[in-house]
Design a protein around this nucleic acid. Structure first.
Length: 471
RNA sequence: UCCCCUGUAGCUCAAUUGGUAGAGCGGGCGGCUGUUAACCGCCAGGUUACUGGUUCAAGUCCAGUCGGGGGAGCCA
């Protein structure tokens, strides 16, 4: 059915199209009439930021009956000649010869996406239609661009994309509250003799949940394939009501064999730079919009990001800097002391004020970090790193993994975890163990950083958050 | 989960000390114009989230319910 030309292609190769007949399909953004006997209809098909202007003369057959009734949101197909524009706003336009209306807007008076400014709060309530706005179209293209860049980066570096499971039988990931997956009847739960829920009768014959991280699974494949990564949805049942958290989000988790924390941090830096370079190269149209309407400095910020070396800071030095700041009069709500898990205010000061750009903080106290992180020789810290970004806080969290079984077991014991639950994870340390490292990058947080969007619910098509799963 | 803010036309917002509900945009009609967030005129559009209370009088004050937002915690 569609021999239509993508509007993006019309603009990209406009010299080739000038004077030729083209057909475009899309949705009306605006219509302006001129009593000179023509109407200007701006069409978008989502392929690029700009609309294409169709100049529709009153000689087309359905001018009175249909063209003059077009409002924002109507779907149309326009055929005509691509010509250099006589007007100022665009280089190419379509001198329309025919226009077919696929669907009118039932009640233009109450069409939710009228051509005016809407608040993001309102648009979340019409999430099924918000992709039709400038902003959400731009976000969709940016999101796609960044996702493709992730895959391209890893592919070019020899990493294999490993599809880790979304339903997980492991209840030991320890990364947060989980969503239970079950086919049991809520109203009639089978019970064990002890009165507990009898998961043996459940679909999988055991308790299962939605994954909170692919890390433990991907480590297993790393221990055979050397360089691997996951990129998929992740679920946290935390009751987090913030502009930086989702119950369902996408995470990128590479895992590198024969690598230490420095290799890990370098990989994170290279990945982020690659992603943002791709964005600047491929989606400048959308980025210009974000710079104009959402966040003035976003382009400059990315340009700096891709050209500067990452700042790196040892946790111990970060604490020293914070303590020094306190001495000089900076006020924090929470006290600063070696051993603390840094609060948002501390992280923000480090990245926004002290360093002024993203910073990798490394070698955290072992007591505030997960069991699988590799213990440093000082006996106090582990080889963990967080990358902090202005306006967001933690964007990457990673570590070198503990590859020595006896030390891993010691940590499991210290944290009161059951070795038996981790039998397959421990096996990796028994059969040809190697030093390895990896990290998790929150995909939506990268999009927030790149675009300057304020709320994470606006950079994913259909946000899932506490008390919120419409659409 | 905690703290704070908020709910008025399809949307974005006004409404003084408690005193008869307003504008812009969007929509309809008309005018003007190779227009560009066009412009000019007219018209339509409201149970002020809901329930109850105080008062001669409530959009405004009080209580509860529901919704939305911001911040904190947790994290990516």
């Amino acid at each position: 059915m569609s021999n239509a030309l993508r509007i993006a292609d019309l603009f990209k190769h406009h010299a080739d199209h000038l004077g030729t007949k083209v057909t475009v399909q899309g949705w009306v953004r605006t219509r302006r009439d001129s009593k000179a006997g023509i109407s200007f209809v701006a069409i978008t098909d989502g392929s690029c930021f700009d609309t294409v202007q169709a100049v529709v003369p009153n000689t087309v057959a359905n001018y009175e009956s249909e063209v003059l009734k077009l409002t924002a949101g109507c779907s149309v197909e326009i055929t005509g000649t691509a010509v250099a524009s006589q007007g100022k706003g665009q280089s190419v336009e379509i001198q329309a010869e025919s226009i077919k209306v696929y669907g009118f807007v039932d009640d233009p008076d109450t069409y939710p996406i009228s051509p005016k400014q809407h608040s993001f709060e309102y648009l979340r309530e019409v999430a099924h239609l918000r992709a039709r706005t400038n902003t959400f179209g731009a976000i969709a293209r940016v999101r796609h661009c960044l996702a493709m860049a992730v895959h391209r980066f890893f592919h070019e570096q020899g990493y294999l994309w490993v599809h880790t499971p979304i339903i997980t039988g492991s209840d030991c990931e320890g990364a947060g509250q989980m969503f239970r997956v079950s086919t049991l009847d809520f109203l009639n739960m089978p019970k064990t003799p002890e009165g507990k829920i009898d998961y043996a009768q459940d679909f999988f014959g055991r308790e299962t949940n939605l994954t909170v991280s692919g890390q433990l699974n991907v480590e297993t494949w790393c221990m055979a394939l050397s360089k691997v990564y996951t990129f998929g949805p992740t679920f946290r049942a935390e009751n987090s009501n913030t502009s930086r958290h989702l119950a369902e989000f996408w995470m990128i988790e590479p895992e590198i064999a024969f690598a230490d924390l420095h290799v890990d941090a370098k990989l994170a830096e290279d990945l982020l730079k690659f992603m943002f370079k791709a964005l600047l190269a491929e989606r400048m149209d959308d980025m210009k919009f974000f710079a104009e309407r959402i966040d003035k400095g976003c382009i400059e910020r990315l340009e700096k990001f891709v050209s500067a070396d990452f700042a790196k800071l040892d946790y111990t030095d970060a604490i020293a800097a914070l303590e020094d700041a306190v001495k000089k009069g900076v006020k924090f709500e929470y006290p600063v002391k070696w051993g603390i898990d840094m609060q948002s205010e501390h992280e923000r000061w480090l990245t926004e004020t002290y360093i002024g750009r993203p910073v990798a903080v490394m070698n955290y106290p072992k007591d505030i970090k997960a069991f699988y992180m590799r213990q440093n020789d000082d006996g106090k810290t582990v080889a963990a790193m967080d990358i902090l970004a202005p306006g967001i806080g933690e964007i990457v969290g990673g570590s070198q993994r503990e590859e020595r079984l006896e030390l891993l077991d010691k940590r499991l014991d210290e944290m009161g975890l059951h070795k038996a639950d981790y039998w397959w994870y421990r096996d990796l340390r028994r059969y040809g163990t190697v030093p390895h490292a990896g990290f998790g990058l929150g995909f939506e947080r990268a999009i927030i950083y790149a675009t300057g969007m304020a709320n994470i619910r606006d950079v994913i098509p259909f946000a899932r958050a506490p008390k919120s799963a419409s659409f």
